[in-house]
Nucleic acid binder design. Structure first.
Lengths: 332, 332
DNA sequence: CTGTTAGCGCTTTCAA
DNA sequence: TTGAAAGCGCTAACAG
């Protein structure tokens, strides 16, 4: 049950050259006479030789592999992000190890990635605790945050300006006359919620002279069911609109309302932020911040390739432009 | 920029033992005096030593890594499947390399997985061509198909009985009096569609003495938009119901109908097969075959662990039980 | 342009 | 119970 039948030695012997020459051919080194090269390539094709990436990694101390830490592949936001990452990685010939992390075990996951000698890490998680931060720091492998933020440690990152984005949509709701606007959040121990999205919401209220009311803040999980379950409390809070941080949750809130004869947008407005195609699937369709999700992934991966290549980054913290798509769940 | 500061040598020297002993401790070999073991472990903790998985893989010729080939991470069916896989892999201490494959480049993807010396491959793709089949066969690494089928080559696989499942839901539609039932498929060059799901649909028609009509067969992509776009033709075909092979497509068909004032289920019925939570998000909610998606992933990964461990498989082609969830898009 | 020779960090006999 | 030593398959100086 040999996995690897034919090695570089076999090719060398068969081609009547040294293994170094074979290595050169395989790695596209130009210092090989073209006759020799052809001969070697013929043998390679013949023997169906495939370089052993593990041996290569050990010898070269590079794995041409990057680790992607993703909190939940089933969440459309993250999976879309990973598509952008994947495409760019492929473009630059990096392999990807996609590791699901439940946030809590993030440092284990990172540790295992590091033991695999990844050349870089793309982190999509929303919680970076001290242990993880330390581990990342002393590992010496470049790290880029993709669609996620860390206040304590300025790692290279790619995001949109969540504060402004949420502020803008909240302002629209205010402009429509709402006084009691609920904020439907993911876990509030996540910086992206507590220090960014919530902040934008608060800014909007403050600018409009509306008092911030904790009873209008609801935290759940990034899931449809979670949004739906929160519906009860949201309605009872007296809120007349919701700013939601996740599309699936927003779909849950919206459906709860329509299921309970609350007309949207006439009697209740809902706006979300990820603009995944979930927003098109609900009826009425969800108004949303437009985020260049795919691009966030792509740009962050591109940054990582530069870092792995020891190139300079012009900007370390990239903020991509966002927009707004008015659909049917809001009046404006 | 050393990735790996401390090696097994450092630990050995520091602990005053040979590297072989350190290796034994790290690998849980019991033939080590417990004092020695404690000493070594102390040093390991002290130096923060982490074994280099690449070197390990080279020496042991095992990578404790499996490759997962997934057609599209953004499709909820596959991402849900991968959750089951991931959980079981974690349980058995296998790392996962998740590789997106666009079906067309599947053999490239597999090749790169093999060069990484994966110990096994879990394949979720729906197209297995001759080149890929050959590559898989001569690689000597075990392969399990997860939620996908291959007629030409009986690889171990985990699925539900698609034929029966689709047949059953088609029969329900027939029982409701429908004569013109459309079949909304993914690409028809995929075996799972052409030889399984379509087959179930045809069986039901045949049993009911309804003539098969090609004009009622519509093929698109596994995407919401694709289903929506097909809506036009479906309606024009005179069909009064749709059997759809993918939840997102089904949501598209359903929304197209309601957007065009076709009342569901009164004037048109829609039934789908994956029972992802998309079926709960639409209004009306989608009736669906119940598939144990997570379990399909979990069981297939479990099978793969057995294969990688050279254990016997009781059954090579596992069919998990399916059910039916009647919701609002059908009368029965 | 090509070959020789050390390793990369670890596992695994084989002896002791 | 422990250590010595030989690789795993490849890259990367260094010679020539």
């Amino acid at each position: 049950m040999e996995k690897q039948a034919v090695t570089i030695y076999d090719v060398a012997r068969e081609a009547g050259v040294s293994m170094a020459t074979v290595s050169r051919v395989v790695n596209g080194n130009t210092n090989v006479r073209s006759e020799t090269k052809d001969k070697v390539e013929a043998v390679i094709a013949n023997l169906n030789y495939r370089p052993n990436a593990v041996a290569r990694g050990l010898a070269s101390r590079k794995s041409t592999t990057v680790g992607i830490v993703i909190p939940d592949v089933t969440n459309i936001y993250f999976s879309e992000l990973s598509r952008g990452i994947d495409d760019v990685a492929r473009m630059y010939n990096y392999q990807i190890i996609l590791a699901n992390s439940e946030e809590k075990n993030a440092s284990e996951v990172v540790e295992s990635l590091l033991s695999k000698q990844v050349d870089g890490i793309l982190y999509m998680g929303n919680i970076i605790d001290d242990r993880l931060r330390e581990e990342l720091d002393k590992s010496n492998v470049p790290v880029v945050l993709s669609g996620s933020v860390d206040l304590k440690n300025q790692k290279p990152s790619v995001n949109i300006d969540y504060i402004s984005a949420v502020q803008e949509i909240t302002e629209k709701l205010i402009a429509s006359g709402h006084k009691k606007i609920s904020f439907i959040s993911g876990p509030l121990n996540q910086t992206i919620n507590s220090d960014f999205k919530l902040k934008g919401y608060q800014n909007a209220l403050e600018d409009a002279g509306i008092e911030y009311d904790e009873d209008l803040i609801f935290a759940g999980e990034y899931e449809y069911e979670s949004g739906y379950q929160l519906g009860d409390e949201i309605r009872d809070s007296g809120a007349t609109a919701s700013v939601v941080v996740d599309d699936e949750m927003a779909a849950g809130v919206l459906n709860y309302m329509t299921d309970n004869n609350v007309k949207i947008p006439d009697n209740f407005e809902v706006v979300t932020v990820n603009n995944s195609h979930i927003t098109l699937m609900t009826r009425p369709q969800l108004s949303s911040v437009i985020q260049p999700i795919y691009d966030i992934g792509a740009v962050s991966m591109r940054m990582l390739t530069k870092l792995m290549n020891n190139e300079e980054l012009e900007t370390s913290e990239v903020l991509l432009a966002h927009g707004y798509a008015k659909r049917e769940s809001t009046k404006n």
